[in-house]
Amino acid sequence: MNLNRGVFTVSLDFELYWGMRDIVSIEQYKDNLQGVRKAIPEMLQVFSQNDVHVTWAAVGLLFCNDTHDLKQNQPDLLPTYTKAVLSPYKYAEQAGELDSLYHFAPELIDLILQHDGQEVGTHTFSHYYCLEDGQTQAQFEQDIAAAIAIAKRKGITIKSIVFPRNQWNADYFSTLTQLGVQCFRGKESSWMYKAASVDVSQNQFRRAFRLMDAYINLSGQNTYDLNTCVQNAPFNFPSSRYLRPYSAKLAGLEKLRLRRIKKAMDDAAINKRLFHLWWHPHDFGINISKNIDFLSEIITHYQLLTKNYDMVSLNMSELCQMQDA
């Protein structure tokens, strides 16, 4: 890859309640889920005003109009997780008619597509967990095929994937290549970020270290040589930093959180490497103005790095295209 510039990449795990339903109830999380419909237009405005290109990795179920549409588009082969609670299909069957506010968002996908530089990728069809016991590669293949098919209804060709809970499974890469998915978002190299099942990744010890790493440098800058990223298919554009949402309890540490991100961006810009920031749109569903203001500070710093070091913003699909250039 002959880009010879630092790259600022953003990817968003767009999932609504499908990404939270095995963790919290709708009642517990409804403020975030309701607020995301205000937060997304504000995010898009910030991106558009600053020419920031973003990959929106959307759960395929969000493309559905309602519960009937979901059932019409789900794959024949469903995941057989050992832990039944992980299956969204069992949840949907028990719930009956699902509330569109929390489960479906075709109009938001349309809004995203109206903005230049915004790519819609996939977060799998069903928020599929690739490292959980009981599921199989054949089930994963049907899930991704369903995600690709429902995206085509809106004229979208899926090129990028973000694995739910960052459970990427190298054994499944051949399936992605076969179906035309060119790249994925991997994880930071530190032990605290290693891809693992839900039980392992949510271990309190690991979570505590990831929280501290958001404010002080425990795992390094996590920027990447782009030539290394594209050595094997599908290409791996790893995460550099999860943009944690504003927390009133930790408000006194906001300057540290911002400095941690800026330092890594500096490293990428100066050394012509990749910096990859990610979060969930529902993270911004509460404290919207605080989160948008913080994002705006990051984007302002990106603009400074563009001016001083010629840094460029590319979404994941555009990064793949640079390999072909």
Rank of each mutant, 00 (worst) to 15 (best):
V200R: 06
V200I: 15
Q202P: 06
Q202E: 14
Q202C: 12
Q202D: 12
Q204S: 14
Q204P: 15
R206V: 01
R206C: 03
A208T: 15
F209M: 13
R210Y: 02
L211S: 04
S219N: 04
S219L: 10
Q221L: 15
Q221N: 15
Q221A: 13
Q221E: 14
T223E: 09
Y224N: 06
A233Y: 10
F235S: 00
F235R: 00
N236R: 05
N236G: 09
F237W: 11
S240M: 04
Y242T: 04
R244L: 05
R244D: 02
R244T: 08
S247G: 07
A248G: 10
A251F: 09
G252T: 06
G252M: 02
L253E: 00
E254V: 05
R257E: 01
L258W: 01
R259W: 09
K263F: 07
D267I: 10
D267M: 13
A268D: 07
A269V: 07
I270K: 10
I270M: 07
I270L: 14
N271F: 12
R273I: 06
L274R: 10
F275W: 14
W279R: 00
H280W: 07
F284W: 10
G285N: 09
I286R: 11
S289I: 14
K290L: 10
K290H: 09
I292Q: 09
D293L: 03
E297K: 15
E297Y: 09
I298L: 09
I299Y: 01
H301G: 12
